[in-house]
């Protein structure tokens, strides 16, 4: 299972990187969103998959899966949401004031 998920993460990271390298701002934002998906999966895979019960005490199981990555991911999900929201707004505000959604055309505006 871990190996398969790891390969899936590889595919996700590749696609995310490809999108991040685009000129279009929406693609860049999507890329960052997919990258965070990939990292969440990576984190939980690092803790080992299906090695025990749900990490809630008092059940019948003796061993639990690693809870630490889960806590980290929970934090990461919320933060990546905030970042995505900020990116999106930044992008469309930039589009409104610069008039292009193409990163190539955005550069060299004489605002320096």
């Amino acid at each position: 299972m871990e190996t398969i998920i790891t390969l899936l993460i590889g595919v996700l990271v590749s696609v995310a990187t490809y999108l991040l390298l685009s000129k279009n701002v929406i693609r860049v934002v999507l890329g960052s969103a997919i990258l965070s998906h990939a990292i969440h999966l990576l984190l939980i895979t690092m803790g080992g998959l299906k090695k025990g019960g749900v990490p809630i005490l008092g059940g019948k199981v003796e061993t639990y899966v690693d809870a630490l990555p889960q806590a980290l991911i929970l934090t990461a999900i919320v933060i990546s949401f905030a970042v995505t929201a900020f990116f999106l707004v930044l992008m469309y505000r930039t589009y409104q004031s610069v008039g292009t959604d193409n990163l190539h055309e955005m550069r060299g505006t004489n605002d320096e």
């Binding site: 969440h40 939980i44 749900v54 990490p55 809630i56 899966v65 889960q70 999900i77 949401f81």
Partner: peptide, 24 residues
Amino acid sequence: IAVFFVLFRAPDLALTQLVVETVT
């Protein structure tokens, strides 16, 4: 991914992921 979280014994994550994905 939310489904995977369920399979990987992470109910908290699955719930959060579902909601966040919707909102996103």
